[in-house]
């Protein structure tokens, strides 16, 4: 099964530094392929270099797509992560 979500990134510095690390780590632990797309460009969510290269800023909309068993649960967790302001927490 394939699932997809559109999320607005909450971290005040966007998907840079620590928020990007937390997101990529979670994507790696998901166990199924996940992609993250901003506009036309889509990258492997488990790739820190890919995620950084999207240049996602605070308030940008990204589309997460997962394929495989438990795709919905994986996307719920990743969506929650992106909707939290980690820079604020740090």
């Amino acid at each position: 099964m394939t699932a997809s979500r559109t999320v607005t990134v909450a971290s005040s510095h966007g998907l840079h530094a620590r928020p990007a690390q937390l997101f990529v780590q979670a994507a790696q632990e998901a166990g199924i392929p996940v992609t993250i797309a901003k506009g036309e460009k889509s990258v492997d969510a488990a790739s820190i270099l890919g995620v950084l290269s999207l240049g996602v800023d605070h308030g940008d909309e990204v589309v997460l797509t997962a394929e495989g068993e438990g795709a919905d649960d994986v996307l719920d967790a990743l969506t929650a992560l992106l909707s939290t302001d980690h820079d604020e927490a740090a």
Binding site: A17, R18, A20, Q21, V24, Q25, V43, D44, A46, S47, I48, L49, G50
Partner: peptide
Amino acid sequence: QEVLKAQAMMAEDPSL
């Protein structure tokens, strides 16, 4: 630690 952890993740990056 944050900088070095990020570097470790870059080293093991699947795209790379």
